[in-house]
Each structure stands twice: as C-alpha cells, then as structure tokens.
Amino acid sequence: MDGDLIAVQDLRVSFASDAGIARVLDGVQCAIRPGEIRGLVGESGCGKTTLARAILGILPPNAARIDSGRVTFGGRNLLDLPEARLAAEVRGREIAYIPQDPSTAFNPVFTIGTQIADLMRWKSPLARTANPPTGRARREADHARVVAMLRQVQLPNPEALLRKYPHEVSGGQRQRLMIAMALLPEPKLVIADEPTTALDVTVQAQILKLLKGLAREHNVAVLFTTHDLGAAYEICDRITVMYAGQEVEEAPVAEFFNRPSHPYTRKLLDSLPSAETGLRGIPGEIPRLIDPPPGCRFNPRCERASAVCLAQRPPPEQAGPGHVVRCHHRLTDAEA
C-alpha cells in the first residue's frame, strides 16, 4: 500500500546446514505504516529474528540465502541495496535494531561509554544537520544526548555507567543500553527483538511507555517481537502471528485477543499461564524446516486440517477490517 513505511513481500530465506536446506521464511508478507506499533509473535524458531535480520541485511553471509522477495523502504528495495549504502544510510540510522541477545551486542574490551561515543560519531542525528558542530562542541552535544537518553530508559547514574565494561552491568541494564543505543540516532523504524524480556515489570512499563510515546509523538514505527502477549496488549496497534516461517494471521490488537481467526492463534492464546487453566502447551512439535509439511505448515498439529490444507498454502483472506488470515478452515465468531 502507498501509505506503508516498510513492505515485505513474498520473502523467502533459507539456511544451509549439514543436515540440509532449511526453508526458514516461506513467502512472508508484512507491511507497517509510519508510527504503527506492530507486534510479531509466534513460537520459538518460527523465524522472527530471521525476518528482522533479512530486513536489515545482516543474515549470516555464508549460511543464509534470500531466495526471493522484496523489502520496500523509502522507495527502494533494501534487498538490492549495496552493503555499503545499507550500512551508511539505513542500518542503525533509519532502521534501528534492538537485538535479542544483548550479550553479543557489546565488545567486551571497551567501556560502554567508548562504544556509545563511537556509535554517535557515525550515527548521531547531529551528523545529519546542515551545520553540525565539530570537535569538542559536537562531542559535548552528543554526550548530553546520550546521558538524557540513558535517563529516559531508567538507567541510574549514567556517567558512572558509561565508565563500566559490559560484564559489569546486569542483564536488564544491558538490555536498556541496547534500547538507548537504538533510539539515539532517531530512526523511523525500530525493530525490537524481545526488548523487555530481561526487565522487571516496573521497568518494562516505562520502556513500553517510551516506545509508545515515540510512536505517538514522533511517528516512529516499531516492529515489536515478543513472547509476552501482555506486553503486546499494552502497546501494539496490530499483531502479526507467524508459524514455522509463514505469517498466518494479522489483526488489530483487540481482534487478535477477542476474535482470533486462525486455529494456531487460538491455541497460542490458550497457552497463556493462568490459575484457571494451569499450564497448557500446544500439542505436537514445531516442524523441521528442512522438510516442512506441504501446504499450511500448521496442518500436522491442527485438528481442523483436511486434504486441502496439505495441498496448498491458504491465501490471505479478509476476516474483518485490517484483519487478514490464512486458513482454509478459519474459526467462526462463535468458535473464536
């Protein structure tokens, strides 16, 4: 659509390993509007991080291959953009990334302050202004921004923190540092891969508020990967559900929780821990992506599956305003 900030079309990515070729993304469609907060949910291994990395052009070069697809952003196809331009113009600038595993994101031999100063040298919003200050004035201006941002993500005593090494801060502090570093360059899209998993609920509430504020006031879009459906409920406008490399449902947040249309979404919601239902997983296993089930990849675990589910992947169908589902036997309102 014209109003989209980013549109992923028919994206196919495979990984080569000794065991064979794994088809990790199988024709993924996903479009996000400016200022939208989009949740991305689905079982572990369904390809959420791979989608993020494909958009950013940071798939592992030897193991991964993009077989087809487009990622349209700012009028160009990011998949065609040369690496040098992606690195200079897009990554960490227009599109920021908060990676899933904060332990790998820092270099252990430099202090946190050194690493953030380095980031600001290249990616500070000041570098993009008409007459940027230089030398010491620039460094001081950038430093002030850094300190203010660390306060915004609720990190106490920013000056002392900047002198620390990565192993000297707690898991949640590292995660907030990652968030601060992603936001400092003032991106248009933030891809946040489980940004609040290591945070207690009080800090999580502040971080979610911060993301929501960025979206509402500065029109920043967020692709928010999470396993925490409560956090998704808090801030998302819409939610995309993925299963084994295919997107199966996309719905406005209220519809997602109240009127899910795909049987997998229903089961995902049913596995939320609660005192009444106890611990309920989804029976069966995630399929191996080396020889995935044909058609709808959820068919082996779905009690509604019929011959057509094995024959072809269901096409996208409208289930309501802004609500798209891919299922041959979607739930009726009564069943949802």
Binding site: V201, T202, A205, D228, Y233, E234, I235
Partner: peptide, 29 residues
C-alpha cells in the same frame, strides 16, 4: 508497585495507568 505493573490482557493498560516515581537510586550511592 511491582504487582500493579503487571500487564493484564483485556484490562486497563498499565502503560496508561502505572507510575513509579523517580529513578531507581544508584547502587553505588
């Protein structure tokens, strides 16, 4: 306050209602 900050699906949003004053103090001070 910890219990008040738990998101409740279907309920009022914590991001609209919750507040815990101030920053956590620095553990060095």
């Amino acid at each position: 306050s910890l219990l008040a900050a738990i998101p409740r699906i279907g309920g009022a949003r914590v991001t609209d209602t919750f507040s815990l004053e101030g920053e956590p103090p620095s553990p060095t001070n």
